[in-house]
Design a protein around this nucleic acid. Structure first.
Lengths: 234, 234
DNA sequence: CGACTCGATTGATAATTATCAACGGTTTGA
DNA sequence: TCAAACCGTTGATAATTATCAATCGAGTCG
């Protein structure tokens, strides 16, 4: 049975195509014998919108890759204010602090039905001793988190509210082609951009009136990237 | 001669005490024979206030540890706005993006006379094959950068300007004991906190009047941590 | 020494955003 | 089906911050 399951993962090219594990080159470079070793304790699971993957302070023994869906990382300030400090997109890794032996820092909350792959830290450590490729990929993951954080600091947390909203939408649209973008609740937008719910709402409403964004469902909208980009620049 | 120099570094406990390399455990765990291999190409150098360590886009072949001094990492937005996205303190590592084969992302500008230790990426890679301790330390460094970024996002980029200033001063005072804190120019404060120079100036001036901060030299001030903490909370 | 420059400060005013409040539409559940 | 809850929107007003402009003080240079 286990053998069957492992083979399934091995062959599950479709899902793994988007899986961060795939990009971590764990799959590409290891022999099939290693493969069993890797994948046995790794498991996949789903969480619905609103669910919590972990809370701050939770003991961390795994990192997670997001196969599908969207997740926000949330911090509460002493005065009760909520701040979303990061968005985890499909293919991203969450909970990297586990690799440093730290407890989780944030609330990780599902924004869109999510599918995760849980990877025990012990597994990563074992693999690190076998292959240098994993280390390279981890480096790259860390780096991505950092440059993302820089972007949030520079573009999503300064300037006029309207520009921030524009940047946010463009950010959410990244590597999503021309598909409809995830449109956060106005509350979440506020928490992401350090503005109030009302301000976020006003701006989104205005953008809708101007035809720059077109809501197609509760949390999906088509956006005019060109005009949004213009908004950012002036 | 070279032998002499190497021995000098080997024995230079005083400076290395504060050096990130020390914390990276390169020194602690390696044999003296390895040590030569490590330290030959590593060199130390100084830069004065205002100097630039690197520009964005510069080809990166080294990471740097800051032995002494203070450095800011700066980004320019498309509209010309300047944003300081990070402060590098004594013992911190700068330019980690080099390990991911990326060009540098920011302007790294010296705020207080700085002493750096340049470590070629190739050296890191070589060492990584020898010792798992280095990898651990690198993980830890990355983690620190990320949690710092989270702090900047949550505390230094939201809330009222006065609170942000208070947080900034407390942040700069971290692990500095009761010594005088580095007091940035009002321009830099603005760029760090996403407020204008004038607002920063008004707030600093007010804090001085209230006796919460006491300027002892151009860029040094004594601060009342207790009262600053209170400011953050209400 | 005096003119000059630079950074900090302050004032007056405008712009932006927050706050408080109300309303409409949708969904949920009794 | 109706009430309740929730979310988004909008209005009116207050608070905060930005902007434009001027002044002050320290330090520099001819």
């Amino acid at each position: 049975m286990k053998q069957h399951q492992i083979s399934k993962v091995w062959n599950a090219g479709e899902k793994c195509e988007q899986c961060a594990i795939r990009h971590l080159v764990l799959f590409a470079d290891l022999k099939k014998s290693d493969f069993e070793l890797i994948h046995r304790p790794i498991n996949e699971f789903n969480l619905p919108v609103g669910a919590t993957l972990y809370h701050p302070g939770d003991r961390s023994e795994s990192i997670y890759t997001l196969r599908e869906g969207l997740v926000k990382l949330v911090t509460y300030l002493v005065d009760g204010t909520v701040r979303v400090v990061r968005i985890i997109k499909k293919g991203d890794v969450v909970g990297l602090e586990a690799l440093d032996g730290k407890n989780y820092f944030h609330h990780a909350i599902v924004l869109e039905d999510a599918s995760f792959c849980r990877i025990p830290v012990s597994q990563i450590e074992t693999l690190n001793e076998h292959s240098p490729h994993l280390a390279k990929q981890l480096t790259s993951r860390w780096q991505r988190v950092i440059s993302d954080a820089d972007l949030w600091l520079s573009k999503l947390s300064s300037g006029f509210a309207k520009q921030r909203v524009a940047y946010l939408l463009l950010y959410l649209a990244e590597d999503g082609g021309d598909q409809a973008v995830y449109l956060p609740s106005r509350d979440d937008m506020g928490a992401m951009l350090a503005i109030t719910t009302e301000t976020a709402s006003r701006i989104v409403a205005a953008l809708k009136r101007e035809g720059i964004i077109n809501v197609v469902s509760t949390h999906r909208a088509l956006i005019d990237k060109t005009r949004l980009t213009e908004l950012c620049e002036n």
